[in-house]
Structures are given as structure tokens and as C-alpha cells.
Design a protein around this nucleic acid. Structure first.
Lengths: 87, 87, 87, 87
DNA sequence: TCGGAAATCAAGACCC
DNA sequence: GGGTCTTGATTTCCGA
């Protein structure tokens, strides 16, 4: 059986380069995502120091997101119906 | 390193029996679950032969489930507020 | 454009009733399926508190299921052969 | 019992405004975070269509992240030691 | 029937 | 340490 290292060695240079690029892109995006997570945490701690109950706030915001999702779904359903009418 | 077989061999009889029982229970439940999945698929195909658009129907039913979840969440939020009021 | 409500209104009573029944049947079956999923989760947590490694157990059970499927396939193949002999 | 609406009504205007701002900030950040998640998924699907095994790629990237964390820890430890030397 | 997309689920990280 | 969020893996589902 070929080891992973052998497999990498047997890649063409172009493939290896492509691999590096993919990894770099993902890692870049993940780093940005992690930063945003930090920012969000900071906003919550600001809220807390402002006297808001963060647990309630989290719930509230998650509920708003659900509403939004639901609205999107309703629209998707409507689209489905409209598509069905054209059959 | 002990192989899996060795580990089973080294179990006490009681443990081995317990193991068998757990596996039997899970497999029993999974079999029932699989049956239900089959039943559901059959209902959808009945619907289809009745002239309903199953894609629409699936969406509709999933939307109803979401509504239900949302209602539960709203209540959870209300409970949070009520709890917060008691502080 | 016809609103969703209009479409439902324009269904015959019989069709509307049929629709309700289908939805009820699917929701019933899905509720039962969800219960079974809960039961299975509970069995696993029992196993865990009994000292079994649930990850391994899951793997084990899924392997047994695969074997079972293979056996079923073999049997189906056998049936096929036997049928062929009768031709 | 005070209704939720009553509670919001009883807030000062400034507090209410502050609340809105906090919610807007969090929702903004979460939207950006969700976009990044989408971007990452897209990169993976590009990789897949390029012939890479995404499961392996995910593992690889997560290992690199671990290494990075370890390196960071080592450095933190080093800083600690160096600080100690200055005491 | 296959492959991709999405839902589901448990494990791990992380905050309180 | 309890609970929530996130991630990763598995399973499920649909369309081609």
C-alpha cells in the first residue's frame, strides 16, 4: 500500500501546487470566520456590561433567525407551487 | 496490543451477555425505524398516484414541523423572561 | 396570480379531506420515527454508563448491518439462480 | 404579569435604541460568518471536482490547525520562561 | 442507481 | 460543571 507521503510525492507539481492553494484558501477563510466569532463574543460581552441578559439575547436573536429562515422557506414553497402550476 | 477479539474473550460472561442484549435492543429499534421510513415513503407514493406533487407536500410538512418547533422556542423564550423577572 | 389559499379553496372537499389525511398519516409516522430515534439514543447512553465505548458499538452495529445486507443480497442472488434452474 | 411588549415599552428610548443596535451588530456579524461558511463549502466542492478526497482534506487541515495551536502554546510557554528569567 | 446536497446526530470546544 | 455552539461524520433524500 502507498503511504500518504508516497502519494504526495507522486503528484505532479501542478497538482501539488493546486493542493497548496486550496489549503491556503480554506485556512484564510477559516481565520476570518474565527475572527468574526471573536467579534460576536465581544458584542455579547458589551451587551452584558450594558445590563442585558445575554442568555435571553442569544435566544431572541436565534428566534429572529428562525423567523427569517421560515420566511425564506415560505417563499420557497410558494415558488414550488408556482412551478407546479406551470406544469 | 490486545486485539478486539482478545478483548471480547477477556470479558466476563455477564458483560458479554449484556453486550448482546444492548446490540439486540438497538437492532430491534433500528429495524422498526427502518420500517417506518418505508411506510412514510409508501404514503408519499400513494399521494403521488393521487395527483399530489410530493415535492410540494414534503416542503409543506417540513414547514409545519418548523412552525411547531418555533412555537416551542417562543415558549422557551417566554420562560427565560419570566425567570429573568424573578431575579 | 392565485394565492395559496385560493388554490386550497378551489379543491373539492373530497380532495381537501384526502390531503388532510395524508398529512396526518405522514406526521403520525414521523412522530413515531422520532420516538424510536430517541429510544436508540437512550440505549446508547445506557451502554456508555455501563462502560462500553459507544463509538465502537456504533461501528460494530453498522458492520453487522452491512453483513446482513450482504447476506440478503446473497440470498436474493441464490433465489435468482434457483429460479433460473426452473426455467 | 407584565407582557413582553410591556417590558419593551417600559424601557427608556435610549435603552431600546441600544438594544436595536446590539441586535443589528450581532446579526450583521453572523451574516458575514455564514457567508464565509458558504465560501468554505464552495472551496471544498471545488477540491472535490478537482479530484481531491474532501474527507482527507478536512482531516489534513484540522491537523494543521492543531499543530498551529501547539506551536502557539509552545511559544506562550517560551514567553513565560523568558519572563521568568527577567525576574 | 449513483452522486451530490441536506438533515441528523454525537463529540468536542468554549463560555459562563 | 452545565449548557450552548460548533464541527465533523453519518445517514438520508432527491435528481440525473
Amino acid at each position: 500500500m502507498m503511504s500518504e507521503q508516497d502519494r504526495v510525492d507522486s503528484m505532479g507539481d501542478a497538482t501539488r501546487e493546486k493542493l497548496r492553494q486550496f489549503i491556503a484558501r480554506v485556512e484564510r477563510l477559516e481565520a476570518e470566520k474565527a475572527e468574526l466569532a471573536t467579534d460576536i463574543r465581544e458584542v455579547y460581552s458589551e451587551m452584558k456590561s450594558f445590563g442585558f441578559d445575554t442568555k435571553v439575547m442569544r435566544k431572541l436573536i436565534s428566534l429572529r433567525k428562525q423567523d427569517e429562515n421560515e420566511r425564506a422557506e415560505q417563499e420557497a414553497l410558494l415558488d414550488l407551487y408556482m412551478g407546479a402550476l406551470n406544469d
